[in-house]
Each structure stands twice: as C-alpha cells, then as structure tokens.
Amino acid sequence: MKTLLLILLGAFFIPTTFAQDSLEVASRKNTLKLDLTHNLIYRNAYNLSWERITKPNQSMGFTVGYQEFPQVLNLGENIEAKRESDAGGYKFGAEYRFYLKKENKHAAPRGVYIGPYFTTLGFNTSREIVYTQTAEPQEARYGAKFRLYSLGAQLGYQFVFNDRWSLDLVLVGPSITRYDAGIRLEGDFEFDPEDVQNEILDALINKFPGLSDLLNEKELDSSGKLDVLGIGYRYQFLIGYRFGKYKQR
C-alpha cells in the first residue's frame, strides 16, 4: 500500500518537472475516443472519452458511458439462475495528462504520458432465482448494486496517425478503490436470506478481476451491504478521432 501511495503522489506532483518548455501545441486540440476495453468485460458497453489539449504538453479528459453487468449463469451450488429482469450501469471519469518532453519527439497528444485519474462505475442487476437446498424449491428475486470509486495514477502511450486518428493505450494504472456492494432478496420464501445473499455475492464479484481476492471471506452486513477499500487497476484500449481548427506549425 505504501508503494502505491508513492506512485500516486508522484503522478500528481512530479509531472510538473517535465512539463516546462514543451513542444509546440498540437494542430488539433480535441480527440473523441471510443473505449473498447469494457466491451471485452461487460455487456452492451458504450463508453466515450474526450481529450482536450490545455497546454503544449498537457491535456484533460472526461469519460461517460453505459454498460451492463456481465452475464452470470452459475450463482451457487444450490441456486438456479432464472430470467434476468433488469440490468444497467454507468461510467464517469476525469483525468489529467502530462506528456513527457524528454521522452517524446512530437507534440501532445502523441507519445508517453503520466498523470492522475478518477473513475466511478455503477452496476444494477436483478434476477429471478430458485433455491433448492430446502425441502421444496423456493423462488425469490434478488436486486444487486455495485459502486466502484477509484483514484489513481496512469502511464500510457498514444499513437497519432495522419493528424486525425489516435490509438491510446493505458499500460499501467494502479488506484485506491472503494468497493460498495449491496444485495436484497425479495419474495415469499422461508430460507435464511443472509446465507443466500452471500453466496450470490461470491458469484458476482468473481466477474471483477482481482476483486475476489480482496473480498475473500468478507460477508454482507445485516442490511445486505458491503463497503471495502482496496487496490484497483486500470488498463485501457481506445481508438480516437481528432478534430479542431488546423494550424500550420
């Protein structure tokens, strides 16, 4: 944890050392990007990012998107998953980048960059289930919510082609992340809901890379909620289109 904190502090304060006397401002200051990373993890993911050059080798960016929780077929040994009745989610984020003059031959947004970022993810999912551990199978419906709040630092490289297209790769992005989860069972049943809720939680968190280790042996409280602070990671693959008034350099 100490190492992570040093990385985060460095990303916030050290970049100003590299940010002085930069290259000329890029000819087009805006880049609109499609984030393809979440398409590999979540369902129906549509995330857009906008990057704006603010200084010769600095930029700010914002992200907004919609995504649904991954399909979970196996919820536990004694739980049969039925029809999913609701699914949805969102992503919001902001970041600031410092393109390193000593490492880059070209003006931003092309080349190596570092900087801080913040993201928040939210997911809602509801499903009908059948619990088979009782003498007779009993039906119920669960509603689950996940909220992730991440503050971190990233290292990446952005390629620019023909002054119009970009390929943006976030290679390293550790963060301090707050994981907030909640599950509620509804229906006319006789089994103990706490046991079933925790079994469902275990199945759902396995869809988040590395989260199962963090929440190992963690259980929901009596109200069906779980709130944990831990380490998160960020890796991204984005394709962008650059626009804005062209200036001859």
Rank of each mutant, 00 (worst) to 15 (best):
V112H: 02
F98V: 08
S212C: 02
W165I: 08
K207D: 02
Y131C: 09
P116K: 15
I200G: 07
L211P: 01
G122Y: 02
R141E: 14
A94H: 03
G187C: 04
L204K: 02
Q133E: 14
G156H: 01
N216E: 15
D188N: 14
K102R: 11
G143K: 08
D192K: 04
E186F: 14
F146E: 00
E194P: 03
N162L: 11
T120K: 07
E103W: 07
T125Q: 08
Y149L: 07
F146T: 00
G187W: 06
K105C: 08
P137W: 14
R110S: 11
R178C: 08
Y117E: 11
V130I: 15
I200N: 03
H106Q: 15
S166V: 06
L155P: 03
R110Q: 13
L185Q: 11
K101W: 12
G187R: 09
S150D: 11
L211E: 00
T134N: 11
S150K: 07
G122D: 05
Y179I: 13
V172L: 13
V170N: 05
Q197S: 08
V130D: 04
S126K: 12
P109Y: 10
D168C: 06
Q158V: 04
G187L: 03
G122T: 02
T134Y: 02
R97A: 12
Y99N: 01
D213C: 10
Q154A: 12
G187D: 14
P116V: 09
A94S: 13
A107R: 08
F98H: 05
L215A: 10
K207S: 05
R127G: 01
Y131Q: 06
Y157F: 15
E190A: 12
P109G: 02
H106S: 15
G173Q: 09
P109W: 12
D188T: 01
Y149N: 12
Q197Y: 04
Y149K: 10
L215F: 07
D213A: 13
L211K: 01
I129V: 07
